[in-house]
Nucleic acid binder design. Structure first.
Lengths: 194, 194
DNA sequence: ATTATCTATAGATCTATAGATAATGC
DNA sequence: ATTATCTATAGATCTATAGATAATGC
């Protein structure tokens, strides 16, 4: 049963969006094509009319998840972003949370096309979480701002990843999150002064 | 063909060690029982005489990898640890590198027993990478030291994870590593003063 | 007699493809 | 006529188990 071209595009986008959530939740290897297509409301055979391979879908799912994160970041100020990013709510909701934090472990074992999407995600984080949209080769002040931003996102991503690897509701998991949230907020207000 | 009890224990330890390297390299789902046993020099059927399940092995493999990291850390001073941890050599050698950084993404989706092993790994990093062996509820100075240590390891783990998710040999991958290495070294020397 | 390892296989998955079906769009 | 989706399946994996084999350790 063929559908309209517009419906087909919508179906395709829906599959990508579904994949972006399922991959974040269960990991790349934790989601099968049949699983995914079923969750999106289709049978699995149709998948290969939309995508060349599961790895190809991963690239699009990563871009989709990163775009979702960008949209969320735009609705918050710098302090709000830090407070959300390093919250228990974010930590305990991988499916809707930061794609880079949820899937960078998987990305390390993926082909170059996927890693390129993640590099773009890192640049997005530099803009959003750290407000550090500046070139590597600008003035000394711009370079310093970019360095500060890289340090901030590394710490935030690391804190989220470590907190998720600790037992659910353990004090260590919460401690990592709280300590790094306080540090990021302090850094934010001190950079606003300078 | 039965072997001596001592040989059996050695075989078991060899399987755990092989698993700890293969899991770090390919991820939990990227290593099959047959793969693993073949790499260790056995046929796959024998696996279940040693371990109750693949998930049980994961717990032991994580502990083994963390112990290997502890041993390496003991052979270096604080500066040496930072320089190694945030080096390209470490980034490009997941199989022999930090277990927490290589597998925390997978650990987030594993059962509580595995997460407990990872929490112990985080405490190991606090001791090794940050020298922060101190209780949560000590003096104000001890609390501050622990907080500093948590910030340091979050940044280091985050930098490694992000660098690995970027395209191989990309400038961004190297930049993340270099910036966070410089920051960790600076923090180290300033805390030595204080 | 016990048991670590082996061979062989069950049963369930996985990615990917082939061909049927039915609705669009010429 | 084209084609998005469906049904069905190929071929390769996966975890786990059953029973045979052969060497230990009583």
């Amino acid at each position: 049963m063929k559908v309209t071209n517009a419906q087909m595009q919508a179906n395709r986008a829906h599959i990508v969006k579904t994949a972006s959530h399922l991959f974040r939740e269960r990991g790349y290897d934790g989601v099968g094509i049949a699983d995914l297509m079923g969750a999106a409301g289709f049978t699995h055979g149709g998948f290969y009319k939309h995508f060349g391979s599961k790895a190809d879908l991963m690239v699009e799912a990563a871009r989709c998840g990163i775009a979702q994160g960008d949209a969320k970041a735009e609705s918050l100020d710098a302090q709000g972003i830090v407070n959300y990013y390093l919250s228990r709510k974010h930590r305990d909701n991988r499916a809707d949370g930061c794609t880079v934090a949820a899937l960078s472990g998987d990305a390390a074992r993926q082909p170059a096309s996927t890693k390129e999407a993640f590099a773009a995600g890192v640049e997005s984080l530099l803009e959003g979480l750290a407000g550090g949209k500046c070139a590597k080769d600008g003035s000394a002040r711009e370079r310093d701002l970019r360095h500060q931003s890289i340090e901030t996102i590394a710490q935030a991503v690391g804190a989220l990843v470590l907190s998720r690897a600790c037992p659910d509701d353990s004090s260590l998991a919460d401690e990592i999150l709280e300590v790094c949230r306080a540090a990021a907020l302090t850094k934010l207000s001190s950079s606003a002064e300078g």
